[in-house]
Computed example of a mutant assay.
Amino acid sequence: MFKHWIKLGALLGVLAALAGCSATQALNALVPGDTYRLTPDVAYGPQARQLMDVYQPKGEPPDGGFPVVVFFYGGTWHMGERAQYRFMGEALAAHGMVAMVADYRLYPQVTYPDFLPDCARAVGYALTESARYNGNPRRVVVMGHSAGAYNAAMIALDPRWLKQQGHQVSELAGWVGLAGPYDFIPIEDPETRETFHHPDVPPESQPIRHVGAKAPRTFLGVAKEDKQVNPERNSAQLAERLTAAGVPVEFKRYDHVGHISLVVSFAQPFRWLSPALREVSGFVKSLPPAPASAKPAQLAASGAP
């Protein structure tokens, strides 16, 4: 353990030495550039922030295509840019997944729930267009960290959002939440209060209220000592509810990381901090393809009830 902290101190020193860079710019500067193929600035909708960067694995895809992960970053719904998460795109692509790192609209441009249609639209793009990036449209997983994990949870658990985009939750192979808030009324954080209309926070805004037997297979990862989002109230409780509903769940608690360093542990220089990348990769690759099913528009055209 002591050696680990020596390594961390040395790496933080390297980051600090990269003058003029933000923390994520410095982190991304240490990420390999030869482990993926990048298609930047892919529009999944008409809004300025409805863009994603797509990271493809190198090499030949398996039959049917690579698994696809749509990733949403955190930032209390107030901040974040997809370019800051090149380390996540590289991590997933280098481990055999097509990674779609998506922007979405933030406060004050929007408040709850208007960022959720953005996220659903990004996932809908993956479901319909991932084959052009050697992805398998029946192996699409939605993933997020912190506020992004909330977004992923709502897309996976509340069918309203994908339905608005002409899709169904059953089209997802699974979902991944890292350090996410899933049950946070009453809201304490001032920025989150602004986003969710405090004191009139809609009860249906909480992912835990949307647990059901039809939820996709789930991976929940937390920092055991997370000081920002209570891992027991949020992830542990959600895992219990999903399991009781008959949904397969993998729930992992990680030592030696916090709320932020959990996602940082996906970056190549910091992967010794936690096995989260290896375990998320194993989960995604183990998922069976979602069943082939007709879209609502297809059903209507066929005259089916």
Rank of each mutant, 00 (worst) to 15 (best):
H4F: 07
H4E: 15
W5M: 12
W5C: 08
A10P: 00
L15Q: 12
C21N: 13
C21Y: 13
A23K: 07
Q25G: 11
A26E: 09
L27T: 14
N28T: 03
L30R: 11
V31M: 15
V31A: 12
P32G: 00
G33W: 01
Y36R: 00
L38W: 01
T39E: 15
P40D: 01
V42Y: 02
A43F: 00
A43H: 06
A43Y: 05
A43W: 04
Y44P: 03
P46E: 08
R49G: 00
Q50R: 11
L51I: 12
V54M: 03
Y55K: 01
Y55E: 04
Q56A: 15
G59I: 13
D63C: 04
V70R: 11
Y73D: 03
Y73E: 03
G75T: 07
G75M: 12
M79H: 14
E81P: 03
R82D: 08
A83Q: 15
R86Q: 13
G89D: 07
E90T: 06
L92V: 05
A93L: 04
A94Y: 00
H95Y: 02
M100Y: 02
D103H: 13
Y104G: 02
Y104L: 04
R105M: 05
Y107V: 00
P108S: 01
P117T: 14
R121P: 02
A122Q: 01
T128N: 13
R132W: 03
Y133E: 06
V140K: 06
A149E: 13
A149W: 09
A149K: 13
Y150K: 10
Y150R: 14
N151W: 09
M154H: 12
D158Y: 12
P159E: 07
W161G: 11
L162E: 15
Q165F: 04
L172D: 02
G174N: 10
V176P: 03
G177E: 12
A179L: 09
P181S: 13
P181D: 14
P186V: 08
E188P: 00
R193A: 14
T195F: 09
H197M: 09
P199N: 05
D200I: 01
R209E: 13
G212F: 04
A213L: 01
P216S: 10
F219K: 07
A223I: 09
A223G: 11
Q228G: 12
E232M: 10
E240D: 11
E240K: 15
R241T: 11
G246L: 00
G246T: 01
V249K: 11
E250G: 07
D255I: 06
V257E: 03
V264Y: 01
F266W: 03
L273C: 05
S274D: 10
P275A: 13
A276F: 02
A276R: 02
A276K: 02
S281V: 15
G282Q: 13
V284H: 13
S286L: 06
S286V: 03
A292F: 09
S293P: 02
A304H: 04
P305R: 15
